[in-house]
Write a protein that binds this DNA or RNA. Structure first.
Lengths: 363, 363
DNA sequence: CTGAAAGCGCTTACAG
DNA sequence: CTGAAAGCGCTTACAG
């Protein structure tokens, strides 16, 4: 419970007595309201209308320079903080973007959030962040929950939302940008890269290195991982190799799981000579498991990962991986979304930021 | 720009003609407003007042059961979503908590966010998340920026905020709970553990294992890391060991930095036989560096970390570390904050969740 | 460049 | 158990 504190916060600046007589009406002491300093308090002290204070804040070029300076000083003195809820209600602009990612634990999305924050911060937007735990149902529920905050837009992960989520967003005409994959149609805004091509590139790399039995390790099995898998299989097939050496689990992806999956792979496919792990945490676990078993990497088994998480470049050996433009995805997606919200022209609805194959010692 | 869509979203349900005559006034087509379905739309269709709809939503026990059911059906049909901004403005309750952490990249805080989300979600709260990059100035700026969203409370990291941040929070009477450390006074609400004691425990462990020249590796040098350092030094001194073997850098902490700091340690203190890394990412980097140099862990050099991040338990060798109750810190801090906001009794203002020393093969 | 009036969509505080 | 009136603190849309 925030108690009214207006009297303490908005001292009438020594000239309390004199101003009291010029004031149209004395401040009411109602039990409503937050008790915080309002735009009307500022206006009263400045001797102008609330509109002018609003203008001094939002469109300063429309206010005389000296008045502007005086208002700024008063705002500072009174400690006035605009009430965003009132602004949102009056203008139908919340200045909030809702961001929905599958997981906070997967380091992949963290840098994306940094990119989003950097661009939104520049533009005076805040963001609400939700985590779906890779559940499309949870995503729908989050969208519904966030809807009441009337976000000016949504940043979603992937392009595979449920029907009802899509409908909800469409019905409320809320702009959306999808991240980490490329939109299915040109009408959908998206910023990402081709997950399929990334998997394909890794397959061709391993084949080119001469590995004869490359396998695939994956956990979580979200839609994007499955697209990488499809690309990987296609790449192996195109290279004349078998594509059915794989260990998949729907359980969450983490380092420990990488060790477990590698163990299963060695058991079922003892002749496997390279593994493509669908995330770098699996690759790290696989590497430790090889070390424990005394298997030379890449001599006995090559290991490749995905995303270039912080440890991959300095592991022993350094891990070959696909470098994904995570920060940029967030930054550009936020930019695209605000362009859309602001009614700016959108030259390109589908922004493919590509990926990079980092060749390191582990393959 | 969100265009009005009310006509499409709130079909007057077939009985458009008849209701049109009972309605006091036809819906205005103004250019203001969000164009979304409002509580008045729902009230009109239900043939009751807006207040009753509001009650059906917030205090259903005050509304007749059959009316309640009818209202629910209408809300569902019209796709009504309450406008949080209007609610916030009218009630001075935003149902939003602002959370401020030093870093998204440091996995430590991610689980804390999960704990916060889980408890807040239970109570119908949303949260805004800010990242300070370990800068107290940035923290003050974030607090100011969030203040305009009139959060019902703040969750802050650490107990070492700047004066002006403290003043700002105090002046607006916003409840705060501090996380990851213990409050300086009993009046401050905090949920964490003693960073000093954790450092102390690690020193005593290494001493007990018989290491003669344990050193300390730290990056970032935030206040909590420095408290761990003080505890570590005290522990070494108490054990009769030297406390000045340390390599510190204010640069950000990551795996790569762990390798770099270990290299510097070996250079300056070739007889160092154990290192306590102030975060597990440093420990991982240090481990890889030892592997590259062919130094046996723990034979030539023992390695201990802090936090028990996901890789520590399954590294090769597994890394001794301090297990910190990160998820619980978030969960309990959110709980304590909402208790405070709700005016519930606070039996304990300083909640010490302790820590655990995980003894593993690396020491 | 500045202001008076009305409105955004809820909830409070009464009243019945 | 239900409702009419007023108000939350801004901004829109005019008007000057």
């Amino acid at each position: 419970m925030i108690k009214p504190l207006k009297t303490a916060k908005a001292p009438r600046a020594g000239k309390a007595d004199s101003t009291a007589q010029t004031m149209a009406k004395p401040p009411r002491k109602t039990s409503r309201g937050s008790g915080r300093v309002t735009i009307v308090d500022v206006a009263r002290v400045a001797g102008v209308s609330a509109m002018t204070i609003s203008r001094a804040l939002k469109t300063p070029q429309l206010v005389q320079a000296d008045l502007r300076a005086r208002v700024a000083a008063i705002i500072d003195k009174l400690g006035y903080v605009p009430n965003q809820a009132a602004s949102t209600l009056a203008s139908s602009q919340s200045k909030v973007i809702a961001v929905i990612v599958p997981s906070f634990t997967n380091a992949v999305f963290i840098e994306t959030l940094s990119g989003i924050r950097d661009y939104l911060g520049l533009q005076g937007y805040q963001f609400l962040i939700g985590e779906t735990a890779y559940s499309a149902q949870a995503e729908s529920r989050l969208i519904a929950a966030y809807m009441r905050h009337a976000p000016d837009g949504f940043l979603l992960t992937g392009v595979d939302q449920l029907e009802d989520a899509q409908h909800q967003l469409l019905a409320n005409r809320v702009p959306i940008v999808r991240m980490f994959d490329l939109g299915k149609t040109a009408r959908d805004l998206s910023v990402g890269f081709s997950q399929r091509k990334a998997g394909y590139a890794m397959a061709r790399h391993l084949a080119a290195r001469g590995y004869k039995k490359p396998g695939f390790l994956a956990a979580q099995l979200d839609p994007r991982a499955m697209k990488r898998r499809m690309g990987f299989r296609k790449g192996l097939t195109d290279a004349g190799l078998a594509a059915d050496i794989e260990i998949l689990t729907p359980e969450p992806s983490d380092v420990q799981m990488g060790a477990a999956l590698l163990s299963r792979m060695l058991e079922r496919h003892p002749d496997c000579d390279a593994v493509f792990c669908c995330n770098d945490d699996l690759a790290l676990g696989a590497l430790f498991e090889c070390q424990r078993r005394g298997l030379a990497v890449p001599g006995r088994l090559a290991i490749a990962g995905f995303n270039d998480l912080p440890w991959s470049a300095c592991a022993n050996p350094a891990i070959t991986t696909i470098v994904t433009p995570r920060y940029q995805i967030g930054y550009r997606a936020a930019q695209l979304l605000l362009d859309q919200i602001g009614g700016n022209p959108i030259p390109k609805t589908r922004i493919d930021l590509g990926f990079e194959l980092a060749l390191r010692a582990s393959t």
